[in-house]
Amino acid sequence: MNNILRIENLTVRVDNHQILKDFDLNINKGEVHVLLGPNGAGKTTLIKSILGFKKYVVESGKIYFKGEDITNLSISERVSKGIGVLFQHPPEINGVKLSKLLTVCDQKRNMFTKETTENACDSDLDEYMDSLAQRLKFSKDYLERDVNTGISGGEIKRSEILQMMVMQPEFLLFDEPDSGVDVENVEIIASIMRELLDRDKVPSKQEKSGLIITHLGYILKFLGHITRAHIVMDGKILCSGNPKQIINGVMKNGFEKCRECISCIDSTEKLEEVDFTL
């Protein structure tokens, strides 16, 4: 199988606190994984470490993207290779209009991808925004506001989604995509996530991959096929397997039980779908 992201023995420190410890994860092309865990488990740290944020210091271990060691690359170099991210709490950037940022994202995507025919918005950014405005239910003057400034949780998600719809990365990181979003908007966001991740295509045509972080996966109901789920606690993956089984286990017993692992997953059930090796 074609490997997209491989994390090996990653130990990450933030302000002198070790957050990730010997963390391993392997995601193949076309796969979507979900990472579940309580607050403070290290989920957002993982995302920011994959991207290479300065504060997230890799003490040991490696991150490979499409087989290439990216552990020491800058954020923009990693992104140029096809990584995209939807943040949970993006910063407010005064003076920079969303429309301007989207134009920059569009230029970057054109620069990063040689074959523009595959991309969703090779025609015209304005027309593309018009069609997205309808689907995502926003008015065009929303684009003329400063990035993430003075807007609601749902609007922040839209802004993040629009940027990713323009960039169309091969591999997407989602940090709590449904947090702060009301019920009717969850389905809209989920439908866009399915599109970004090729989930509505037949499995053989699913080229995109992703990692979704959530502390309780309500949105997962709407996302179609998820390849694997992992439970992360105290900076380590404690359990991996079939998403349904993992989520059911967490729903029933809570994360705390994972620490002592009560083997809540019935290993005889649908065993063929579950691969316990990483």
Partner: peptide, 19 residues
Amino acid sequence: YLMSRGLTEDEAINLIVSG
């Protein structure tokens, strides 16, 4: 944040300054 959209550090600073 802007670098996570593919901008280099200098490009990100320029965009913020011009904004």
